[in-house]
Amino acid sequence: MDLSGNMQCSEAGSQAIRLFFTLGRWCLWQSATAPSQGDFWPDGEVLPCNEGCADVGFLPMMQRRRLSPLARAASAVAWHCWRKCGDMPAVFFSSHGESQYYFEMLHGIAEREEASPSRFSLCVHNAIAGLSSLHRASFLPYVSLAGGTEGIFAAFLEAAGQLLDTPRVLVVCYGQALPETYRAYLATADSTWALAMVLARAGGPGRQLRLVRRPGNSQAVAAGDGQSLVQAILDGRRSSPCPLGRSLWLWSLDDA
């Protein structure tokens, strides 16, 4: 089945899903210091580490004051892509969202403390996407996805669907280390990171990002998928497999 050239599925009994995009622009930030000179992917930028706190000086103080470290990271990469490419619908993705904030809040409630209203409002999973929309005074649609069995690749599935209706979509993925209490149960990122990508329909001018999903049976869990993609971008690696339990994702970036 061919869906507007961006997505093919159930091809010849292989049960593979193929997603094809043109990568227009990317931007990433991570709290760990990035290599100063790397063979990064083309057509993008790595924002300065800024001592582990993404710079959001482009926002007025009243807008940036409540942003958590995770929200600053996501807002910064999204802003830089929008500034270069203009406004467009967006797909935000984070496996666990503001895990530090909601864990602190739950701990406080257990101690019979009153929850902070602003922290509570920012713990809502789509809060970062909403704030980012406010930052650019946009009226375009956005969705905010949480973790699942497909890891960050869920954002690309959603983007492929959105590209049926719109010529470009911004994908913003972000994550941070989980609170210590959760780490016995879930694999987690070891630093805060955010990655934004401007995706267009396949076959446009620019590099072609191809993703293939095949059924998998590994024991891996969807936690390091985002960071492994970030590391591949920093290393200039153009293809990689990513096993995620019931699925195996293979992605590649081609020049033509």
């Binding site: 009243m62 409540r66 009153e114 902070s116 209203p117 602003s118 409002s121």
Partner: peptide
């Protein structure tokens, strides 16, 4: 000062405390 409704709630919690 430009405060909003969330600020009012936050301030209320701080005053009570």
């Amino acid at each position: 000062l430009g405060l909003d409704s969330i600020d009012a709630l936050e301030l209320g919690v701080a005053l009570k405390k």
